[in-house]
Design a protein around this nucleic acid. Structure first.
Lengths: 306, 306
DNA sequence: ACCGCGCTGAAAATACCTTTCAGACATGAG
DNA sequence: CTCATGTCTGAAAGGTATTTTCAGCGCGGT
């Protein structure tokens, strides 16, 4: 490849294959180029993405030139051949696509395409997670985890969307061998709260911090001497009065199609997961085998085929 | 290119060549792959930039396999051949370089501090959301949304952690005036599935794609002519046989303290939210007033003080 | 008009990618 | 234990895409 050279007019290779400054390079070198090469360079610079999809032959046709010219142009632009120019083109296109999509999360609108919906939703939730993590008070979390790890029994109150979060937490705690219950019926919740004692822990989950049906049982548990934890978006809300530890969830931007009650879920789940992992760490001796055990047990519920 | 087929085991091309969600795709498809293909996929996912510089032969050597295997892997990942995978790799590398956020999330360990736990968890979930959004097949989503918007009645099957997601979806659909039920009892689910007819929609949620208790009712609904939707992390799983539309959730990196079954939740919820918003958009005339109405109704359950 | 020079694309040569195929290996049945 | 069956795998054959070669052509100078 290196002996029989003829048109391999290798400039002393001063230019390492440029990454993104392609347009600039095209402009710089344009005067050096012959007419057909300019056509190629021009095309390539103006539509990297489109050209990345073409073979030499394709690009030659599109520019009304020949394969040879395309290769020559590639060389001039600093690449060993068209193959490499093409790769660089793909890279460039990707960069442009990424860069040009800051997609400052506008509200999700009624006439958004589904692609937009997916993108926006994912971005909003990511933002929500970042906010929650940043705002979470680790001291409070630490205290809550300690209480849970030492708890004799754990009751979790949540209603509506928050009830699902409560169930999620309970499912997890059960998996590591703790005694936990989720309550959505306010009456039963209160009835149970009356039974709570010193080492027991009660957790209330409410975004608004004003959900009476959830505050009530927490208050009762609090009055009976249990350790109480509130997971809420309003740490100054009424519920704060009855909570030993407060874990604040972040309030995501809401929109008409996605009310606050709905978007608080992500934040609550993150908090709940942190609680769980914290507890699992501190009870590792018993938690680890329990986790494996539940995994094993579940395996039998799967169809073994495949 | 498309006539002489033998090993051209073309799956119905459900996957448009993924752009950036390659790592996620590798994880999703890993179980499907043979050992040597896994080696290739692994290498490619962990060093896109490096691999983009290699030819088939080069990559085959580097992974200690053959060219054939490399091509096979490319196909499985959704590209027509290695050439295209290579282009995608270059694009991916460029994006990563730009994003500059290597953010190599290490596994959550037993002795991590709570601060670390919070940070890592949040990052993992964010990654999971991004992966899911990138890998979601909008065509399938579109079809699923259309079916839901026109449904006479909607049944959702989910067990364990997936049941919470099912409930979440049902709660939301109810809010915009649709008729939806979540089933966790397999017997009742099947009993109900028998009633399903043409315009009805059945949705099964299972991460593994092998949960018999969830597959059964979906199959029954399918056999009775209902439109069926599967939300699963294994689009090639057994459940695929009975699903008209498949929505793929991404498999997050799992660790001992956070098994796959647990971390799939985030991904599932995003998909469910997208479904919901899509349906809400398409039934806006009735959905909007219904949403406000439920908001109003709930306000009365809050303590008015504050 | 004629000459020389370098641009240009068709076609040959090569490199790269894809497909085929037969042997190696695993798996389950008898 | 042995065989039958099916899957995985890489070597090599078969195609494409890229690169190189080379003869023709247009253009400016004399």
């Amino acid at each position: 490849m290196s002996s029989g050279v003829k048109e391999t007019f290798s400039r002393p290779a001063p230019a390492p294959p440029a990454p993104a400054a392609l347009a600039a390079k095209v402009r710089t070198l344009a005067p050096t180029m012959t007419r057909s090469m300019q056509r190629v360079a021009e095309t390539v610079a103006s539509d990297p993405a489109g050209c990345a999809a073409l073979t030499v032959t394709g690009l030659a046709e599109r520019t009304g030139t020949s394969e040879a010219t395309v290769v020559r142009t590639s060389r001039l632009l600093g690449y060993p051949g068209y193959r490499d120019l093409r790769l660089a083109l793909a890279a460039l296109a990707a960069q442009q696509a990424t860069g040009s999509a800051p997609a400052v999360t506008a509200d999700i609108a009624v006439d958004d395409s589904l692609v937009d919906v997916v993108t926006k939703l994912a971005q909003e939730e990511q933002q929500c997670l970042a906010d929650t993590a940043a705002a979470l008070d680790v001291t409070q979390l630490e205290a809550a985890v300690a209480a849970l790890a030492a708890a004799r029994r754990i009751d979790v109150y949540g209603i509506g969307a928050s009830n699902l979060v409560a169930q999620d937490l309970v499912q997890k705690l059960l998996r590591i061998g703790l005694i936990a219950h989720a309550h959505s019926d306010p009456h039963l919740a209160v009835t149970n709260a009356v039974q709570m004692r010193g080492r027991d822990v009660a957790i209330a989950i409410t975004h608004s911090g004003r959900t009476t049906d959830v505050i009530e049982p927490l208050r009762v548990a609090f009055d009976h001497g249990a350790t109480t934890i509130a997971i809420t978006g309003r740490p100054d809300g009424e519920i704060a009065a009855y909570a030993d530890h407060i874990l604040t969830t972040s309030t995501a931007r809401e929109s008409e199609l996605r009310p606050a009650a709905m978007s608080s879920r992500t934040s609550q789940l993150l908090v709940v997961d942190c609680l769980f992992i914290g507890v699992a760490q501190r009870t590792y001796e018993t938690a680890a085998p329990a986790l494996s055990a539940s995994y094993e047990a579940l395996a039998h519920r799967h169809n073994p085929r495949h």
